[in-house]
Write a protein that binds this DNA or RNA. Structure first.
Length: 231
DNA sequence: GCCAACGTTGGC
DNA sequence: GCCAACGTTGGC
């Protein structure tokens, strides 16, 4: 995150591993907007749960997380972290650090163990959904906010009250084919007229959010595209 | 608390 | 590399 989205980095939950690190962040990812205009939820206030707002009433339990699969330096650090990088991690697990947007952070905090997310490739040649991951550790403080050399260092955040959170995600599988943004967009446009499942997809309505909720209908529809021709 | 300026995201 | 979209900052 961070900047964008994600940024998962290397090691995951256990405290141990390497400390420093590198990549990440952006968070890819991060962020997501428009429509229903959900409030910006800026800040730490407990206020309402965006997830709830967004999906009607129950959290969907599905998410979309953006990360950059191509190298890009941020403060001298390469934030590249594509799905192949996740696969290459020990246990195919990584922490999703670097998210520095309150809405995205709040979605991270709403994630529950075992929930699934689309791993989305952003800011690259071919943006789109590359695979599926699951949440294997719920939100905990993002250590990069305290690291001066991190691209996502936040001098305003204190250890006794961390502003930013991350979760750990584990690779589940690649999608049977890459599902490009361009294709999803065609469906989104059509669904706006026809009332189909992608009509309000956050990927289009909240375009800059690096961590966003996905409804059951959206999740099922997107996965149904896996076995269809790429049009 | 408004809102203009600014910075970032991320598709193209 | 451009630039639209949009979140954040900070003066007032």
């Amino acid at each position: 995150m961070p900047r964008r989205g994600k940024r998962p980095r290397r090691g995951a939950a256990e405290p141990e591993m390497e400390a420093s690190s590198g990549k990440r962040v952006k968070a890819t990812k991060t962020g997501t907007v428009n429509k229903p205009v959900i409030e910006a939820e800026t800040s730490d206030s407990p206020k309402k749960d965006l997830t709830t707002i967004e999906c009607g009433n129950e959290p969907s339990g599905y998410w979309l997380m953006k990360s950059e699969p191509e190298s890009r330096l941020e403060k001298g650090v390469d934030v590249k972290f594509g799905i192949e990088d996740l696969r290459a991690q020990p246990q195919q697990t990584a922490c999703w650090d670097g998210v520095r947007n309150y809405q995205a952070r709040n979605f991270l905090r709403a994630m529950k163990l075992g929930e699934k997310a689309f791993f989305y490739h952003s800011n690259c040649k071919e943006p789109g959904i590359a695979g599926l991951v699951k949440i294997v550790k719920e939100a905990y403080p993002d250590h990069t906010q305290f690291e001066k050399d991190s691209p996502h260092y936040d001098p305003a955040s204190k250890k006794d009250n961390p502003k930013w959170s991350m979760v750990d995600v584990q690779f589940i599988r690649m999608t049977r084919r890459f599902i490009p943004l361009s294709e999803l967009k065609v469906h989104h446009q059509a669904h706006k007229t026809s009332g189909g499942p992608l009509e309000n997809m956050a990927l289009f309505t909240r375009q800059r959010l690096s961590v966003q909720p996905v409804t059951q209908g959206e999740f099922d529809f997107v996965l149904s595209l896996e076995d269809k021709e790429s049009s």
